[in-house]
Design a binder for these strands. Structure first.
Lengths: 142, 142
DNA sequence: ATGGACCTTCCCATGATGGCAAGGTCAAGC
DNA sequence: GCTTGACCTTGCCATCATGGGAAGGTCCAT
């Protein structure tokens, strides 16, 4: 049996988060020693590692709870798990696309900015609402 | 002169956020009517639109404040602006890469899961710490 | 028995946003 | 002029997942 610090080290979840997960019901309450210390065995550490990995894959806590429930239910259908995972893939894809769009817009602005000591800056012009002066097309393949 | 609702509609920033931006010092305090209503003119709306666009490009509020300062300083060097924008591009790229890594891992798991009524699920196996049984390679080009 | 490393709970902060509630104000219609 | 509804004000709470710190108790090795 380990106390919370050891369980944290063994699972990669901070002690702080372990208490939080317990408080919010994501994981069942840990056992306690006579003096009130939480105790963890290998099984609990495995649960914590499960949570850690799911979080690393970007699952929000709510979905992690769903995954944990499926994990515990040995008669679950793999289709149910796959569905959750596919939804998470789609969510990631959406956020990736959003950020790629931001990045592309910003790169466009960056490329049109001289970046020297002069004050003229199409980036600020654009943010300020004035469409930046068109960059003289130097090539069709810019 | 407009009140906060009109300014919100004109700038795309919610009234709530306008008050918040003012409270945190991102934008200067708005003028007030005798009865305490905030008043906004075209100049203020332009500032709000500036903030909105910068946020849409993913800049955190702190960086938006920096951009606003540069915008107000008509003697700024465009290099300073470009530097901020390039840092933001790099930050976006980093987050994109992180999420792409998550997505790739998850897709790998999804592909190895049958997704039928049976309980066997490499996704849960992996999260639980057991390496998933290798998927029988049906083709080199799976 | 003392000190240091651990544990406990509780509160606060983040970043950017939304929501709600209680109360004041304004303008239009009657 | 009065009512009504749409707007404004402030203030507090919630999110989501995490970290920080304080105040106090515990455990173990010296």
């Amino acid at each position: 049996m380990m106390n919370i610090g050891e369980a944290a080290a063994a699972s990669g979840v901070s002690a702080k988060m372990i208490r939080y997960y317990e408080e919010t019901g994501l994981i069942p309450p840990a056992g306690r020693t006579a003096s009130g210390y939480r105790t963890y065995g290998p099984k609990e550490v495995q649960i914590l590692r499960f949570v850690r990995r799911a979080r690393d894959l970007g699952f929000p806590m709510e979905k992690v709870a769903d995954l944990l429930a499926l994990w515990r239910d040995r008669s679950r259908a793999s289709a149910d798990v796959k569905e959750l995972a596919e939804a998470q893939v789609a969510a990631l894809e959406l956020r990736i696309l959003e950020m790629q769009a931001m990045k592309a817009s910003l790169e466009h602005l960056v490329h049109s900015c001289a970046g020297d000591a002069r004050p003229d800056c199409p980036i600020l012009d654009d943010l300020g609402g004035r469409p930046a002066r068109a960059v003289p097309a130097r090539s069709r393949y810019s």
